[in-house]
Design a protein around this nucleic acid. Sequence first.
DNA 1: CGTTGCGTTGAATAAGGTCAAATAGAGTGG
DNA 2: CCACTCTATTTGACCTTATTCAACGCAACG
Lengths: 262, 262
Amino acid sequence: MTTAQAPLIDCRRTTLAGERCDRTVPKHAVSTHCSSCRLRELCLPVGLSGEEIDSLDDAIYTRRRVSKGAQAFGAGETLEHLYAIRLGSFKSSLHTLDGREQITGFQLPGEILGLDGIGSDKHRSDAVALEDSELCVVPYARLEELAQRFPRIGRNFHRLMSREVATNQNIMLLLGRMSAEERLATFLLNLSQRWAALGYSSHDFVLRMSREDIGNYLGLKLETVSRMFGKLADRGLIEVKQREVRLLDAHGLEALVGAAVD
Amino acid sequence: MTTAQAPLIDCRRTTLAGERCDRTVPKHAVSTHCSSCRLRELCLPVGLSGEEIDSLDDAIYTRRRVSKGAQAFGAGETLEHLYAIRLGSFKSSLHTLDGREQITGFQLPGEILGLDGIGSDKHRSDAVALEDSELCVVPYARLEELAQRFPRIGRNFHRLMSREVATNQNIMLLLGRMSAEERLATFLLNLSQRWAALGYSSHDFVLRMSREDIGNYLGLKLETVSRMFGKLADRGLIEVKQREVRLLDAHGLEALVGAAVD
DNA sequence: CGTTGCGTTGAATAAGGTCAAATAGAGTGG
DNA sequence: CCACTCTATTTGACCTTATTCAACGCAACG
């Protein structure tokens, strides 16, 4: 075939609701200060104001670029900082002694990397950028001090950690109890919700990760992932073109899943 | 056969190393105050002393008995307290809308129940006692205050939460990448280590949970669990009699697993 | 001594994995 | 613009593992 097909998602289009679907969060939208960052209400500073947020801004003075495929940190390194994603996306993964890998999560802007290493003062996972990305460097010792000084910062941090626990429990449920089809559907709905929370379209998005990464995360082989994409498409629930995904029938997907998505 | 076989584990025996294998933690060994509790260094008060531990003792003034099969709390309930296990053991599980269950963990003395609910101010899981048990009730608001006032209490709490994240990631790895046999071996090694940390034998212990619960936790059916017990026993790695387990070759089990156990 | 709950075992089946080959794009250099 | 390469993805045929269904054994208990 020589017909150049139109992309499933037009990245220049802006919908009625002002949704955007660029492959990266537009840089100009993310200020270099928490106080004016558009991710403020999704990130560490949720609900903070005045002195609190100024102190946080004061502590988080470094930004760091990580290019596609590079590590933000690797397992075994001493944990000095946590990282908030300003821009881009990451995968976090665990490695076994015998070389197997398990991706434990994909992180989007506003999410925090490194929480799992606090208990051992060392990072236990690798964090690899799925695209050129940018991080806010949060010196952990400073964060502890702030949590000490400002009750709300401490509270936020506890909620954040607890949600991380909850998210991981949901994945345990997915891995332990769901069929391949349900896993993929759950995964897509979860991504949809998270992009929507960031102000992007909930139906149309671009997968930042390969089929292999998806499979690894969902406890499946890439071939199975590919087949399940096909199956969901055949049922008219989604449309897929390479890494571009359109959810045609989110309710249908939810019905198929029969479980909580987040 | 009419021969009454001797139990695999003699619960009255005390080994050279002073190991004990009673079915329950002996009550007299657990004081009603953190300061003198023998679980102190495994529980919330790790490393605390003086004023810190006194404040904690002051906050944790209630104890609660939960009999076998009863809930410490259920999903959906408002989170007012966390619970430290003084005595006994629990299973925590998540339920889907369509009635499936996933056990997310088994908790032993010194471990904390309820951390996953902090992010939503509600319990997300059910915590059910596997045997008659006893809890220390930790009012969450008080704990927040203490974390505020005493840096080390805050730090301890963060480490605790982070370890919970880490543990769950390890289970994700187990569910996503391991065969049935590896899952069971990993499970047994993990229990072994945890009992050992509590001062009990690392080779001999009594499973507090049914085959079905084990299967649910490991993402397997109870029949598969049973078969895998048989397989490990055939290989001479373990000895099983009902719920009594003896690890005959821990190194063999570790070799089989090829992954971190905790 | 029968009932009941839990655990084991066997045979058939299904879901997903494995292996291999085909296809599609993206990127490169002519 | 085209040929070429490299990688990611899809698809098909076959195989392995764990599940399902069913029967049976065992121990505890009224």
